[in-house]
């Protein structure tokens, strides 16, 4: 396998221009929602609101003000995390979702049949159906560009290099330096998803945040969906056993006297 590639998003230099959103749509030829005819969301300058099948990049705007002109306006360009342990990839029943040689996670649109299990499996709400293809879609980390040595469309377009693309190992070093710089300036900066020992084995798209992950719409402890499999499955088996036994007991062949009482016993 080639070296693991991914994104480091430094939210402190994001200017919320949304070039990444459009560059992504241009390269991947994704449509605008309802042909572009939409209503104002009222949620700051965010009118696309979330990642989905036709928004593979999304810029979040967070207004934190104590009073007029007194506060800060956080912006973050969000994208598929290309998890090292990817829930979508685990549950996909068609094999459409694969891990590539760049350690990225890609949905092969010609294999996907639109069952949507991956949508519910993703702890970050990244995936959704693209109404044009009828399949689940998300960021491919421009797999087609990567294969010929081109940078992904979004990070290439990003005017302030808030989105940086590169080898994960190198990006981590860079990110730690930036955190140190910010901390020396008194900014409470932290990395999210940069720790290979952390949740999901680390994220191949990780972030520098200056507030709690929840503020940016990120789960604090993202998990694989299969974490629930054993417990839920076990309890199901147990309840199946109980109900099966009850049924065998209740419906088995009985003595005539019991039958003659008619209706059996209410337990």
């Amino acid at each position: 396998m080639a070296e693991a590639m991914g994104f480091f998003t430094d939210t402190t230099v994001c200017i919320g221009c949304k070039a990444c959103e459009v560059a992504c749509k241009e390269w991947n030829q994704l449509p605008a929602e309802n042909g572009g005819v939409r209503e104002l969301s009222g949620d700051s300058y965010d009118n696309t609101r979330k990642l989905d099948g036709i928004h593979w990049r999304h810029v979040r705007f967070i207004e934190q003000f104590k009073g007029p002109y007194d506060g800060r306006w956080l912006m973050m360009s969000d994208v598929c995390k290309h998890c090292v342990q990817a829930g979508c990839l685990e549950v996909c029943p068609t094999g459409a979702i694969v891990r590539t040689q760049f350690d990225t996670v890609v949905i092969q649109s010609d294999v996907c049949n639109g069952c949507r299990a991956c949508i519910a499996a993703c702890p970050f709400g990244v995936i959704d159906i693209n109404p044009v293809s009828g399949t689940a879609q998300k960021c491919t980390l421009c797999y087609d560009r990567l294969q010929v040595g081109l940078e992904p469309a979004c990070s290439k377009a990003c005017p302030t290099d808030s989105i940086q693309f590169g080898a994960i190992a190198e990006l981590r070093t860079r990110a730690e330096k930036r955190v140190a710089q910010l901390k020396s300036q008194g900014v409470a900066a932290e990395l999210y998803g940069a720790d290979p020992g952390g949740p999901l084995g680390g994220l191949n798209s990780f972030y520098l945040l200056v507030d709690k992950p929840e503020v940016y719409g990120l789960p604090r402890h993202p998990e694989l969906p299969t974490t629930n499999l054993a417990k839920s499955g076990g309890l199901s088996v147990a309840s199946a056993a109980v109900l099966g036994l009850l049924a065998i007991v209740g419906l088995r062949k009985r003595r005539m006297d019991e039958q003659s009482r008619g209706g059996g016993g209410n337990v």
């Binding site: 396998m1 342990q85 685990e90 040689q101 092969q108 010609d110 010929v148 054993a230």
Partner: peptide, 28 residues
């Protein structure tokens, strides 16, 4: 992932999660 292995037979027939070269669309 912890719990995953608890149920026996959790295997994939011909399916792994190991890296593979995806069949992507041709570079435009």
């Amino acid at each position: 992932a912890g719990a995953g292995t608890a149920i026996g037979g959790l295997v994939g027939l011909g399916v792994t999660l190991a890296p593979a070269v995806a069949r992507a669309q041709e570079l435009r």
